[in-house]
Amino acid sequence: MSVELFGVLLGVFFTLAVYTFLYRENPYSRIAEYVFIGAATGYGIAYDLDWLKNQWVGTWSKTMEDSILFVLALLLAVLWYFRFSKRYFFLYRIPLAITVGTYIGLALRSVVFAQVIEQVRSTAALKVVGIDPWTAFNNLVTMIIVVCTLAYFTFTVRQEAAFWKPVNKFARYAMMIGFGSAYGYTVLTRMSLFIGRVQFLLGIPPNPPEAKMFFPWVALVLLGTLLGYDYYKKTKK
């Protein structure tokens, strides 16, 4: 068997091994799980090392000053490792604080625009006059839903006044309709992804056509052993 063909066999085996998990947790799904975690971690390390090398070659080795900064960053990076030291564990908080600080800063400045200002502005800019009635109606509905849902989530107001009850009800109904539709829409993606795997198993191009050859046999072996084992255990009881 050529290496390429063996690769396809591996692909078919791991694909089906994952789906045996639907039946129950079993040695095949466990192999898939541990191989995946191991390989993915290795991939992550390789990927980061590659990234570090590119950073050094591409950017930081150009000037003396940058080289020093790069080395300093590496030294700080090593401090993470002190998490495992009983005495000096607190040192790991320094790289942590640098990381958290930078990203909290980035988050503060991006969230305010992307999630708040832009959303508020596009809601306030919804027109109800000078356009066709259907769009006007939709815009009005959108605005009301946004305002009611926002109000629904307030934490620190005693929602006792009479108007709260209909507002909250309306918000909850709108949310349920919205969540339902998002759920329903996602069915499409999930089915499509599985259809993609089925196409792989059936060897439909661009997938390697050899997969079709392996699919029934691997499926038979996996299912046969699992069902056989369970049947054997049942009858022994």
């Binding site: 306030a124 926002l150 109000a151 307030t154």
Partner: peptide, 16 residues
């Protein structure tokens, strides 16, 4: 949230 709601309502009404 109050500020957001106020801006939305005010902007919406002014736009009318």
């Amino acid at each position: 949230k109050y500020v957001s709601i106020a801006l939305i309502l005010l902007g919406f009404v002014l736009l009318i």
